[in-house]
Design a binder for these strands. Structure first.
Lengths: 194, 194
DNA sequence: AAAAAACTGTGACAAAAGTCACAGTCTAAA
DNA sequence: TTTAGACTGTGACTTTTGTCACAGTTTTTT
């Protein structure tokens, strides 16, 4: 179970991960299973953990006063589910995070992760690269939201994250793109016909 | 001139900045002045520098086939103008970055900055915090683009970055919000009247 | 195996935002 | 101080996207 995590870390770093470092990591990550729709985080809570997804899929979303869900992020294997802002600033989250599929995750507390990063050079290298990737991905999405139409954003997502489109139902993808399910259905049908 | 930069670094870190570290920093940052509309980066170039803005304002944008400018980011004093993705991945940028106002900036090459970060603990602390802030800011904008209407996004920007609204003309703000200038004009006039 | 829930498609209409055209104001340069 | 360019507002119209309603299909649960 921890193999996936160690393999993941290794894929990010040129520093070796030593045996006792691996032991240390395993001590601070705890395996947690989420059933479908089970919450990892609820609105109003301060997020203190990050969840490494070994198997499964999760989503992060807000619920408006009208009860509409707006999906901000989707997470699958080898991704980290967490409300970054809440974790870092210790502020109550405005998001829900729950399991879309039955999910196995390895949870680590923020303080423990900090400790590990300060102790293990490979993890410092990892977190810096991960942060860079987060920024690049986020910038791309912002750029897409400004430059592209709903249709173009869908085809962009198809290119950048085809795994999402295969894995999540259309109404989830629509919400993630900031459009509604009917609009996405029509975008798709326009192109099936040609 | 370098005072602003050193003060800025100090504001981010609990580690002291030593005299010889300051000397080292100054050696790698070079003062550059940009006239209005002068480019720091053009589409197709690989971005190898980051620009710390001492005084002035810059913008990052794409130009569509139709010649429309889509503004992705705005930068003012104490911000860093740079195409993060191009710098990190060494890929040609899809963006232009130019000076909106007459701007004084301190430029540093990516490789030099890496060297400084590896040598000066205060700068490692700084870059980690800055990356965190980038992620938090970017996530907020993504969230806003999905959850909020054009009008709500404008008022959100008014709350989170009032300095932008005072400093840049409306059509720039409109572009930054992903709407067109007429729409923003109407949003504003609706609220002036009440 | 049946029932319930979740998911998708589509028509009719509504609302939001974009486009085009033009006028008026403000600012900066000659 | 005049002139050009940049900026803002607004009306008329178009396009895109959203809303509502309902039907049909697929998946999950009992």
């Amino acid at each position: 179970m921890y193999d996936a995590l160690i393999r993941y870390f290794r894929s990010y770093t040129s520093n070796a991960l030593l045996g006792d470092e691996i032991d240390l990591i395993q001590r601070f990550f705890s395996l947690t299973k989420f059933k479908k729709r089970e919450f990892f985080l609820q609105e109003g809570e301060v997020c203190t953990y990050s969840a490494f997804i070994v198997k499964g899929a999760m989503r992060q979303y807000t619920v408006s006063e009208k009860g509409e869900e707006h999906i901000i992020k989707l997470f699958i294997e080898n991704w980290w589910a967490s409300d970054y802002e809440s974790v870092l600033k210790k502020t109550p989250s405005i998001y829900f995070i729950d399991a879309w599929e039955e999910t196995d995750a390895l949870l680590v507390a923020k303080t423990d992760l900090m400790y590990l990063i300060n102790r293990i050079p490979a993890l410092l290298e990892w977190i810096r690269k991960l942060d860079n990737n987060f920024v690049i991905d986020a910038d791309r999405r912002i750029s897409a939201s400004i430059r592209l139409s709903a249709e173009e954003r869908y085809f962009d997502l198809e290119k950048t994250h085809p795994e999402f489109i295969q894995r999540f139902p259309q109404h989830i993808i629509a919400s993630y793109l900031g459009i509604n399910r009917e609009t996405l259905s029509r975008i798709r049908s326009r192109y099936v016909k040609r």
